[in-house]
Amino acid sequence: MEDKSDVKLLSSWASPFCMRVILALEYKGIKYEIMEGDKLNQNEFLQQCNPAVNKAPVLIHNGKAIPESLIILEYIDETWPSHNGLDLLPKDPYARALARFWGDFIDKKILSIVGGIVKTKGKDQEKAKVELVEEFIRLDNTLATISLGQAFFSGDHMGFIDIVVAPYMPWLRAVEQMVNLKLPDSSKCPHMNHWMDKMYDHPCVRKALEQPDKLLDYAKSLRKRNFGSV
């Protein structure tokens, strides 16, 4: 039976939180319409849809608004079983709890560090650069542990954690260029580098994620706004 749901996403193109929702919708094969925030009366519309936080993303399903990206991912998973039988979250309650924990933990760590690099300078930025390398190594160890030797965080297929982390890939590449930083290669972090290659090979990922060069320009504009120069 054809799904006649009306699905809209209030989005902001550079946001990793919005990109992950787009990736989940693509992965599930759900038809949707993007409503880009900068093309709307964003403050008024967001205030109506997400009065608690007033930020994108907001998924609007049949007129009902669901805010916050991690909540949206779970909503998508529960509302639309995957066409190929692969859900974002595992069925086992314990495994689901662990996936939620790792998704939330990794999300907060990467966001804090990347934000620190983009929004600071001098010693604070140098400290954030060191933390980013350390976190990349930690991600490699985490992936090796929880994937049980498979290619993805979720095992043998893309799942909740992978979709949470994926939108940071182009941001990491943009940050590398912006601050002249090189993340550990496959000789030091084989699992993460292989994971990124596998993710970028997926057509849903290529469609959902922005290009690093575009994000680099955006990051430079943020720095110029904050500091007067890159």
Score class of each variant (00 low, 15 high):
A208V: 07
K198N: 02
M178Q: 04
R173M: 07
P16C: 10
I66D: 03
A151N: 11
M19P: 15
K220V: 14
V114F: 00
L143Y: 01
V114Q: 06
G155C: 07
E33L: 07
F45T: 15
P212R: 14
P93V: 13
S112K: 13
L98V: 15
M196W: 12
L46P: 09
V53S: 15
C18Q: 13
E135I: 01
G115R: 00
D162C: 02
I72E: 00
D217P: 03
K108P: 01
D6S: 08
L132M: 08
A128E: 05
V58W: 01
L181Y: 00
K123T: 12
Q125P: 00
M169G: 00
P212K: 11
S187C: 07
S229M: 10
M192A: 05
V175A: 04
W195E: 06
K91M: 06
K198Y: 02
P167D: 00
P190C: 02
N62C: 13
W13T: 11
A95V: 02
K4I: 12
T79G: 08
R100E: 14
L23C: 01
D38K: 10
A99L: 01
K39H: 07
C18I: 01
S154T: 05
A97D: 04
Q42D: 15
E36P: 14
V21G: 03
L89K: 03
A14P: 15
A219S: 10
L40M: 14
K121F: 11
D107Y: 13
P184H: 06
L46Y: 12
V230E: 14
L148Y: 11
L216T: 05
I71K: 09
L216M: 09
A97Y: 05
I117G: 07
N226Y: 14
S11L: 09
G85Y: 04
A65D: 09
E135K: 04
G103H: 03
H194R: 15
I66A: 08
D156E: 08
H194Q: 15
G149Q: 06
Y32T: 12
A151Q: 11
Q125K: 13
I113H: 06
D156H: 09
N41M: 04
L9V: 15
E33A: 05
L98R: 12
K108Y: 00
L86G: 06
L89W: 06
L9W: 07
